[in-house]
């Protein structure tokens, strides 16, 4: 087999692979306006790739992730703000698609408990310490 045919055969193999997993942001997706592109990247980092677990669409290889990246860029070009874009996504996929859960009644504990842990920790130590000083 010549070198060239071999490469073509493997390329075909790999195309199958990339159908299922084209790696992260691709050159043809990138927006020309750098500011807009940065915004798109920032948003993408907060959006979960639905089929891969715990990866954002920015770093994911799934075709759906690519579609969503393109949609986000289209929306940015159309002049939508971040909030509208997130709403577009959660309307369709629910809060699950956000890697950073929105502040809601059901996520109050998630967002405030770390802070409360912090207060409790120092409170216990300070109170105990004060008591000890008296003794």
């Amino acid at each position: 087999m010549t070198n060239k045919t071999f490469i073509i055969i493997i390329s075909i193999f790999l195309i199958q692979f990339f159908l299922n997993s084209s790696y992260t942001v691709e050159p043809d997706e990138v927006l020309e306006n750098q500011k807009q592109e940065l915004r798109a990247r920032d948003i993408s980092k907060n959006v979960r790739c639905m089929i891969c677990q715990n990866q954002s669409i920015d770093e994911s290889n799934a075709p759906l992730a690519k579609d969503l990246r393109i949609i986000i860029r289209d929306k940015i070009k159309e002049g939508n703000n971040d909030k509208e874009i997130y709403k577009f996504l959660t309307d369709r996929y629910g809060d699950f698609i956000l890697l950073k859960p929105p502040l809601k009644l059901s996520t109050l504990a998630l967002w405030f408990l770390p802070f409360i842990f912090f207060i409790i920790g120092f409170f216990i130590v300070f109170v105990n310490n004060k008591k000890s000083k008296k003794i």
Partner: peptide
């Protein structure tokens, strides 16, 4: 620990699914 088990807690209590990922 909270971030790891919170999606499970939410699912058990409300049947909703949320993600807690790197930005959190």
């Amino acid at each position: 620990f909270l971030g790891t088990i919170y999606p499970l807690l939410i699912e058990a209590l409300t049947n909703n699914k949320i993600s807690v990922g790197e930005p959190y």
